[in-house]
Computed example of a mutant assay.
Amino acid sequence: MGIDVTVERVIPLPCEQVAEYAMDWRHDAEWTQGIRTAELTREADTGGFGVGAEVTRTAYFLGKRIDYVLRVAAYEPPELLDMVSVAGPMPMHVTYTFEHLQDGGTRARIRVRGDASGLYRLAGPVMGRRVRSSLIKDLRDLERQVSRRRGG
């Protein structure tokens, strides 16, 4: 069963600020639902975070602990961060995009695609709704965190 969920939110803050915060794996647990820890477990070929880097996340989804590794497939700050899973319970592809708006705000978008298998296939009808709900909360929390850091 395939999952393909996209959510977006207009955040009334500059694109560079929103993207810089969201693309920094060290903030994952602060704004992404269910993530308890995130660790850079492989640096990009050029060092640090970028294409080829891998982030290992520990999360909880549908009451189960999930450990998975996302590899950066594309990294074009402040517009795009695209990651694919290389280890975990199911194949998934996560894309973050950030668009400059004329009023100085940001259109933030998250797309998650995946192939539910094993136990997750049984939860298939629920998964799309749960993923959408989680992503909506992620973007709400992203706005809160960036606003808080900005002092507003």
Score class of each variant (00 low, 15 high):
66 I>R: 14
86 V>N: 07
70 L>S: 09
78 P>G: 12
72 V>T: 11
76 E>C: 08
96 Y>S: 02
86 V>L: 06
91 P>I: 13
97 T>C: 01
75 Y>P: 04
98 F>P: 02
91 P>W: 12
87 A>P: 10
66 I>S: 11
68 Y>Q: 08
93 H>A: 06
80 L>I: 09
103 D>R: 04
98 F>K: 03
74 A>R: 15
93 H>V: 11
68 Y>P: 03
98 F>R: 08
86 V>G: 05
67 D>Q: 15
78 P>W: 05
74 A>P: 02
68 Y>W: 13
84 V>E: 10
94 V>G: 06
95 T>P: 01
82 D>C: 12
82 D>E: 14
79 E>D: 11
76 E>F: 12
98 F>E: 03
94 V>W: 04
103 D>W: 00
103 D>T: 00
96 Y>P: 00
76 E>D: 13
75 Y>T: 04
78 P>S: 08
84 V>T: 08
101 L>N: 00
81 L>R: 13
93 H>Y: 11
84 V>G: 08
92 M>S: 15
90 M>G: 12
78 P>N: 12
83 M>T: 11
81 L>V: 11
96 Y>C: 04
98 F>W: 05
82 D>P: 07
80 L>P: 09
79 E>W: 14
92 M>I: 09
90 M>S: 15
95 T>M: 15
75 Y>E: 02
87 A>D: 11
93 H>D: 14
80 L>V: 07
72 V>W: 04
82 D>Q: 14
81 L>I: 02
84 V>Q: 08
101 L>G: 02
94 V>P: 00
80 L>Y: 00
103 D>L: 06
83 M>H: 07
86 V>A: 04
83 M>Y: 09
75 Y>M: 11
89 P>W: 05
79 E>F: 08
80 L>R: 09
86 V>D: 03
83 M>I: 09
94 V>S: 09
81 L>Y: 03
91 P>T: 15
77 P>W: 07
67 D>A: 13
85 S>Q: 03
96 Y>N: 06
69 V>I: 09
85 S>H: 03
67 D>K: 09
86 V>E: 10
101 L>S: 01
100 H>A: 09
84 V>N: 13
79 E>R: 15
68 Y>R: 12
99 E>S: 11
87 A>S: 13
103 D>H: 01
103 D>G: 02
89 P>Y: 02
71 R>P: 03
93 H>G: 13
102 Q>C: 00
